[in-house]
Design a binder for these strands. Sequence first.
DNA 1: CGGCGCCTTGATCGGAATCAATGCTTGTGG
DNA 2: CCACAAGCATTGATTCCGATCAAGGCGCCG
Lengths: 258, 258
Amino acid sequence: MPHSALIDRQPAANLSLAPPNPLVSKLQRFVRLDEEEAATLERMTASSRMLPAEHVLFHEDSRPEHVCVILSGMAYRYKLLLGGRRQILGYLIPGDVCDTHFVLFNQPDHCLALAGDSLVARVPIRTIGIAAGRYPRIERALMLSALLDLAILREWLLNIGQRNAVQRLGHFLCELHFRAHAVGLVACDGSVAMPLNQCALADAIGQTPVHVNRTLQRLRRDDLICLRQRRLTILDHARLAEESGFDPQYLRALHMCD
Amino acid sequence: MPHSALIDRQPAANLSLAPPNPLVSKLQRFVRLDEEEAATLERMTASSRMLPAEHVLFHEDSRPEHVCVILSGMAYRYKLLLGGRRQILGYLIPGDVCDTHFVLFNQPDHCLALAGDSLVARVPIRTIGIAAGRYPRIERALMLSALLDLAILREWLLNIGQRNAVQRLGHFLCELHFRAHAVGLVACDGSVAMPLNQCALADAIGQTPVHVNRTLQRLRRDDLICLRQRRLTILDHARLAEESGFDPQYLRALHMCD
DNA sequence: CGGCGCCTTGATCGGAATCAATGCTTGTGG
DNA sequence: CCACAAGCATTGATTCCGATCAAGGCGCCG
């Protein structure tokens, strides 16, 4: 998709059969939202844009005026190092909000870019602030969402610091599936979108693309996963979780409303 | 120090020459506090206890009713893995508050223990909540403090994921010095307390104690640091920062009030 | 003195990095 | 429809950083 194809999407008529708004279904994991709150969130994200893969949403030295909400596709946070090394610090799937919190500082301390073409809503910081001020449940949901990010970050540190290649990768894939599942993004055949290529995967788990490739082959050979054409299927959840030490406890915030 | 020596400290008379309360001086980095706010914080932390090294302040499966504030010494967050591996997720120096935020969940997702005998105040969660409700600046300071933790965590991920042994360790030590400096904990000879032993250091940067030992020797041989008797002196800040890729930008929150 | 932490050292091993080349898709334009 | 380039996945050969195993030293305290 060429860079110029940034078409404004028309807000869809809100039919009762309309697909659920990703932001609403994400925040519903944390608090029960009433009609009015849901409508507010839908209005906030009604205007969105399809942006191409690798598009940079904000930069380390920028002063964003907007908060981004991913509606489809995927985004990833990263930091660059002198010498071209890159660490991916986390990824956002539909419904996820890029930190509302760099509001408080003047600058973010990392970058955010898209992995695969994605639909992105940009909400002015003030608008978010007003909604949070008016609806305490929305404020709480955003807070919990930030805390979940924190919990994920801690688990990633554990993952990179203490586990070997197979476990790291397995853990990463388990988490992706779990998070996608929580917001209803698992297809009926059990597959989930996986727009990250092997280089990005490598930068996410602190390894080289070559090694990621070999580790993937190993997971495939052991019939644990199937990953092709940017879609991931976990063939044996129990065994993959077992082998990679994945315990979804750290993601329990996603089940607060069950 | 034996485990039984948990003596309640008497709140000291608040002389004008009394040493500044660590919590107050930490939060002063984020917002300007007036007399009343400072007094409130001092009152909250007036009652404290000296606890021995390795004392566990809370556990993964506990439901803390209190928030801990470190007044002297050091604490560290960690997670354990089946098989005995441990990842240290961060450390708290005087003035730091253990996440006020697991308040919102029912459980913390990690443990907190002391590195070296430390003076710890335990503040009931309600008390914190009331103070934050009454004094917006305190609430803001606590929020910013949590955001700083987040920024540090991201930098740690970068550190462990992308840097080699010398850089990791150097970066860790630079950060420790910088944070200690910001809250006035650098002695006049330029040294800072470093209660973590080499095993803890290893678990913090995702390496083995043996390798940490050798890396430390290397830093010493290059006249970059001096570390003995639990005190660290950085002999050449510029060169150590240079070699380890340390850029304090991610800690800029500590200079918001300059 | 003896035991226990902790630091230190040496020898060896192995997992992942690195270097380099080759396919395989996919998209583009002639 | 084919030629070509670009991006991504794959493979092999080799190197090296850091892990592992094992032992010894040193200071501290009971």
